[in-house]
Amino acid sequence: MQDFPKPDAVLGAVIDWLRDVAVPNLPPHAAFEAKVAANALGLVARALDAGPAETAEHARLTALLGRGGGIEDLTAALSERIRSGEIDLATPGLADHLWTTTLDKLAVDQPKFAPYRRVRTAETQEG
């Protein structure tokens, strides 16, 4: 196994190069495509960093449903229980799970989304 460079450092270097070097020197359409590629790589980098959040999501799902399984299976089971009315927002832990999972997904998909940033800033100031 390689020690250096770390995968996140490689991704960061490629993203920086695309944004800082390639985009300014490309024709408009190619520059647009390079920006899209840089954004896609940024999403990949954030997804790779999301391991702890995914582990926590799995633990919350396991606790809510009272059984184990893969995260996709557990999410589908939770959705079905909500849809059927078996559980709702009065179920202990459900609202917290939904809120936390939403914020964790926004951290990967849309970290610059203004409402998300306001919530995270407020959490930082409270904590």
Rank of each mutant, 00 (worst) to 15 (best):
N39Q: 13
L18H: 10
L65G: 01
G70C: 07
P92Q: 02
L78R: 00
N25L: 08
I15C: 09
S79H: 04
R120D: 10
L48W: 10
R19H: 09
L43Q: 06
L106P: 07
G70L: 09
R118G: 02
Q125D: 10
P52V: 03
F113A: 12
E33D: 10
R81H: 09
R83V: 03
L64Y: 00
L103G: 02
A114E: 15
R120G: 04
A45H: 06
R117V: 13
H97I: 00
T102P: 04
Q110F: 14
G66Q: 01
A34C: 11
T102D: 08
V36K: 12
I82G: 03
P115I: 02
D73N: 06
K105C: 07
V44I: 15
A37I: 10
A31H: 05
H58Q: 13
Q110D: 10
T124V: 08
W99D: 12
A38W: 00
P7V: 00
S79R: 05
P7Y: 11
L26T: 07
W17M: 05
M1C: 08
P52Y: 09
D109N: 12
E123P: 02
W17R: 11
L43D: 04
A114N: 04
L11H: 02
R19D: 10
A37M: 14
A31L: 06
P27A: 14
E54C: 14
T55H: 12
H97L: 02
A13D: 14
P115M: 07
L41T: 01
E126I: 14
R67K: 09
N39A: 15
D88H: 05
A50K: 01
L106F: 13
V119W: 11
V44R: 10
A22H: 07
F113T: 05
G68F: 06
G42A: 15
L89V: 05
A37V: 07
R118L: 12
P24V: 01
G93W: 00
R60M: 06
E33Q: 13
R117L: 09
L61R: 07
G66A: 02
V10M: 15
E123Y: 05
A47S: 14
L98T: 00
E72D: 15
A37Y: 01
V44M: 13
A95Q: 08
N25R: 13
D96C: 04
L61F: 00
D73I: 04
E86L: 06
A76F: 13
A9E: 15
K35D: 03
E80K: 14
I82K: 05
P92F: 01
L48M: 15
N25K: 10
P115E: 11
A30R: 11
R83P: 01
V21G: 07
A40E: 12
A90W: 03
D3A: 09
T102F: 04
E57P: 01
L94T: 00
L89R: 08
A40S: 12
G69D: 08
W99C: 11
L89G: 10
L89I: 07
A13W: 01
H97Q: 00
L89A: 06
A59F: 02
L78A: 00
L94P: 01
L43V: 10
P111G: 08
K35E: 10
A59V: 06
K112I: 03
I15F: 14
R83Q: 12
Y116M: 03
L41C: 03
H97T: 00
T55R: 14
P24A: 04
R118V: 06
W17Q: 08
D16M: 08
A45F: 09
E72Y: 03
P52Q: 02
A22L: 14
L18N: 11
A122H: 09
G70K: 14
E54M: 15
G127M: 11
